[in-house]
Design a protein around this nucleic acid. Structure first.
Lengths: 335, 335
DNA sequence: TTGAAAGCGCTAACAG
DNA sequence: CTGTTAGCGCTTTCAA
């Protein structure tokens, strides 16, 4: 079963390979009769265009990469929807990969993307990665950092104002009467984590008498939230926070489930607010208040920014290609 | 900024391009001195190997594709972990895509994969897709159906015995004293859904006096579980099922959260069991019993099977390449 | 409207 | 151990 290429199609339809290629790329320039014969031959032979040859000749692919630390995290999954939708609209395919927060995997994927000749990359990472992106950018493959504002003005990024998010969350807790606030999040080396805490602090400072406790965690998963809840339950009720701001919804849900199961009333005894406003927030036992970043819009904006910074793009990128979106508060029963 | 290829590296290090290529592909065959010079030149120039040229010459890539209906579904995300891990071990990269249950997207991704020259594909789909895979297979790109047993013995697949899963779930409910069983799932056109119901029926038939009600749903998401729970709450308590088998964990969690919040005791009044044993099952309000398919092992097995059916593989595929795994029962507090 | 031909970057066979 | 060279399949001038 010989592989069928344009050569075979040309032979089978009695035209030259140049004409077949024209048919593929500029169908209008081929006479109706030959077009019909070519199409018929393609169907009959099962022609599949070889992308390697095409890409080699063209010098670029029509693929972009999107790398996330954890595909299972609904936050990234939701953004992926927007990314894919927008990319499809402009004729690009998305190569999604999962770094599993592993630096080695990140690096090897970055190298792979560059070798593959992707047109650009969307990178979400929980660690500093700009220094890897810079040389790749210089060599001609642009990238957009997703989820964190770039420190270099050369590096495009799309992020949420996490300081504002933290501020909104905690001010809301305080305004609904909470005085002993706890922030459940970590590690603080992750800038989103630190920014949300900064925002929380800003809010607390505005209200004398309100205290802010920091409870450090390792990972942003449900199990960590549960663990913290168990710890809180060993305290005297009066020593417990009355308002908890969790670094994301998963952690908040872990907290909420354990506390509620042990008879702590949510929100009367402890109010809880999460972050990301994932599907799980709206559907948890006690519907969870959360800080909502723009979701689909976020992924689309990332693609649009990438398009703008691609070499040869007709749209010009903004002078400072670091887009920051404002999150908003979604208030539900948990506060 | 001229793109640097092996030609430039060769010039800069004073060797021929053949030697540079040898260094890339068989480093041992190059003298230490030249190897050093070549590596130095590559680093200095920022050489990136062009995959299109390589792939064109080689005739194949080192990429496999994994297409899922919904990246956000933790079941597929977990399998993806195993897929990626195993693929990395054998030097393959994984191109993950999200069909969003859209037939058009499925078809266009399938075509894209073939044009890209992937070595093989792993396909999870909630609709019949074998007829699309067959011609692609005949043209030389093998595939493994993931999550559902293929109907053709020509089509490799990796699946879970869902009839057994349904049986185990419902027998467990009955053995713990339940008599009015409800199966919450749908549409029955989806074979996994139908198989689980078949298993449930098998169990019910073994115990005279036990009834099985079917509650149809559209999608396997938390919100649907909540909706069903609201419906159940409108019934007289005596008309409610005392054991519920949900088609997956997300639906089960939606049910559980609403019922518990309205004072229904789990499992005393209603026992609930889910399917997939995702992270969310173990961490829900009342830890959820679930039917657990092999997770990471499942993804790995899919890759291994794909490797075995790849042309030129040294491992021979099993005579019937339709692997079926037995799920197991994970009993937690919800039953 | 069609065809001929050059060559994208790389690998491997072969010769030295 | 190293260099020379022939294409892999495709697109795109350029000429007819």
């Amino acid at each position: 079963m010989a592989r069928v290429g344009i050569r075979e199609v040309a032979a089978a339809s009695g035209v030259s390979i140049g004409t077949v290629s024209h048919y593929l790329n500029h169908p209008a320039r081929v006479s109706a009769e030959k077009a019909r014969r070519i199409q018929e031959a393609m169907d009959r032979l099962g022609f599949v265009r070889n992308n390697a040859g095409r890409q080699l000749r063209l010098g670029h692919s029509s693929t972009i990469a999107y790398m996330v630390p954890n595909v299972g995290n609904p936050f990234f999954a939701t953004i992926a929807e927007g990314v894919e939708q927008r990319a499809t609209e402009v004729g690009l395919s998305v190569f999604l990969t999962n770094s599993r927060r592993d630096r080695e995997r990140e690096d090897s994927y970055l190298a792979l993307f560059e070798e593959q000749g992707v047109r650009g990359m969307l990178i979400a990472s929980s660690r500093p990665i700009e220094s890897r992106l810079a040389p790749i950018r210089d060599r001609g493959t642009p990238s957009v950092l997703v989820g964190r504002r770039a420190s270099s003005p050369e590096q495009p990024s799309v992020s949420v104002d996490d300081v504002l998010g933290g501020y909104l969350a905690v001010r809301h807790l305080i305004e609904t009467g909470r005085r002993r606030i706890a922030y459940v999040g970590g590690p603080l080396l992750v800038s989103q984590v630190a920014d949300r805490l900064q925002g929380a602090s800003n809010a607390v400072r505005e209200f004398p008498g309100v205290t802010l406790e920091v409870i450090d965690i390792e990972e942003h998963v449900i199990a960590e939230g549960r663990r913290v809840a168990e710890e809180l339950l060993t305290r005297e009720p009066s020593a417990r926070p009355d308002g908890v701001f969790a670094v994301n919804d998963l952690v908040a849900i872990g907290l909420l489930n354990v506390l509620a199961a042990r008879g702590v009333r949510i929100p009367e005894d402890v109010a809880i607010i999460g972050y990301d406003d994932t599907e799980y927030a709206a559907n948890s036992l006690v519907p969870l208040s959360s800080v909502r970043p723009p979701h689909e819009a976020f992924g689309m904006a990332a693609v649009d920014l990438l398009l703008a910074v691609m070499p040869g793009s007709e749209t010009t990128p903004p002078p400072d290609p670091r887009l920051v979106f404002d999150p908003e508060l979604v208030i539900r029963a948990s506060t």
